[in-house]
Amino acid sequence: MGYELTQHQLNEYFKALGSDYLLVGPIREKAKGTFSDTDKIVYGVFEVFEDLVLEEKAFYSPKEFLLPIRETLFHFIDGQIMEPKIDTKPILIFARPCDLNGIRRLDTIFLKNGDIKDAYYERRRNLVKYVMIECTGGFETCFCVSMGSNVFSDYEAAIRFDGNQSLLEVVDPTLITEGLTQVTVRDFVPKYIHENDINVNVPSMDKINNSIFEHPLWKEYTRRCIACGRCNTSCITCSCFTMQDVEVSDDGLLGERRRVWASCHIKGYTDMAGGHGFRKQNGERMRFKTMHKINDYHRRFGEHMCVGCGRCDDVCPEYISFSKCINKLSEIIKEENHE
């Protein structure tokens, strides 16, 4: 069903939804920006339309609602092992197609990689429904069209925010509130962006082989990348974590096991006992991430991991551009194949 809502009606709708769902969307977090006194756009809980920030891209993705930065897996209490309870209020995530496609990649890793499902991810995932925010303009660093993630069809509802004439498509009947039956019915099919400012040519997989690992391209990133890991934390599709145990009391009777986000750019990611580690050079880490995002994952699951949200470019303190990296790689591979 499609509806046309005034801003007031929209807020009434949000209010009604809010009794059943936690509403999550891009919001402004005051004075959390990169520079002091600047704001940061993040995904967070909102109540009214005025809370949402739509004219800027969120610095972080919504992934922490499915995979918290730090998640307690077990409490250890005097010999007992307890699974922590989570808030079971369902969540409605308002996000653009790139991020919704990104969450699908997270689903793949946590629910389909290997025979065993990740129960912690699954229990959060089962609480989440999506309202797709129509996105036809994109932002400066986006390249979703090149990655084929500009379109998403598996949403429970879709919305075009437009002043007093916002349009809403509701697929999931449980999202049709009492109040919605009072508003103007209007057919609405969301539109998608079909051209970004940035085009990326992803090298074809049958032309990529390990010989590219030796290319001087990666040495350039050894010089530039400072291994801060921000590109990983901001990425909607980065899913890695490390286990961490802590003892809360000195007698060792109280403790917990957590998982925390891990970053393949940061030192120690591959380190093993005995001091042996891999990819000591930052450029090798850039190579590893690049291959995962635009080659390895595809070989395993049939679609690219990177959804072209461009956040890694937005957040890199060294102005390293991932889209430029992919394009350079493509050029190199073309040259090597004498195309």
């Binding site: 890793i109 946590f110 990689n113 290997g114 065993i116 990740d118 991810y121 899913s239 890695c240 974590f241 490390t242 286990m243 998982r259 891990a262 393949c264 990611y269 591959t270 380190d271 093993m272 580690g277 291959m291 995962h292 080659n295 390895d296 994952y297 070989r299 395993r300």
Partner: peptide
């Protein structure tokens, strides 16, 4: 092979080499 492993079940990413997961 020995690699750093946090999960053993194909989730944590640490053991991955190309599209291969050493734990799986």
């Amino acid at each position: 092979f020995e690699r750093k492993m946090s999960c053993g079940i194909g989730k944590c990413g640490h053991c991955k080499i190309d599209e291969t997961y050493v734990c799986l």
